[in-house]
């Protein structure tokens, strides 16, 4: 079972990202994926988060308890949810939107300039899709094929090409990071923790 929290602020496509991951896993990877969104006063405009629980069997408890993966696309999301990440958990942050504080937590930190990629491709609204590309590469919880099959059904047709470019950009960046991590690991395994990529 993998618990994921995808967090940011309204308008960043946070919930949509949760739906894309969930749909890819449940429809195309044929596993179980339960997606829930945080409702509440905060759900309109301000902070926003999607919870996705992935499993090989039916998900019984539908919410995230101790996330294995946290994606933070805003400082507020980072501040709110960073502490709930479990030991060995993966934290993915947007390089330009989140400034992580150094903690002693035994987590794997990945940084990706998703919003910058999106802006370079012409629209910051697709930052979440660049983030999804990176997420797919570094976490391995969802297959590349499944994500590629899902995205066309969940983005506006006129923007599909741009979205796929953003996804590929994020994915390629993630692969580079993994390659660097592998190289680093062979050199000095102790440095794996709190691995910053800038």
């Amino acid at each position: 079972m993998t618990e994921i929290r995808f967090a940011g602020f309204g308008g960043q496509g946070i919930i949509r990202s949760g739906i894309i991951i969930g749909k890819a896993v449940s429809i195309f990877d044929e596993k179980f994926a339960t997606m829930n969104q945080s409702f509440g006063p905060e759900a309109r405009g301000g902070a926003c988060s999607a919870q996705i629980v992935l499993s090989d069997e039916q998900v019984l408890y539908p919410y995230v308890t101790v996330p294995d993966i946290l994606v933070a696309m805003s400082q507020e999301a980072y501040t709110t949810y960073e502490s709930e990440l479990g030991e060995g958990g993966i934290l993915i942050i947007d390089a330009d939107l989140v400034r992580p504080r150094s903690t002693g937590a035994k987590i794997r930190l990945y940084t990706v300039p998703a919003t910058r990629f999106a802006e370079e491709l012409g629209n910051r609204i697709i930052a979440n899709v660049a983030m999804l590309g990176f997420f797919t590469a570094v976490t391995g919880v969802v297959s590349l094929e499944a994500m590629k099959k899902t995205i066309p059904s969940l983005v506006p047709p006129g923007f599909l090409e741009m979205n796929l470019k953003a996804f590929d950009r994020g994915y390629a960046y993630g692969q580079d990071v993994l390659a660097g991590e592998k190289a680093e690991k062979t050199k000095s395994p102790l440095k794996r923790r709190n691995y910053h990529v800038r």
């Binding site: 969930g22 994926a33 339960t34 997606m35 539908p62």
Partner: peptide, 10 residues
């Protein structure tokens, strides 16, 4: 209930 109503699954 709200949980089932807002829960997204296959």
């Amino acid at each position: 209930d709200e949980c089932v109503g807002h829960m997204t699954e296959k």
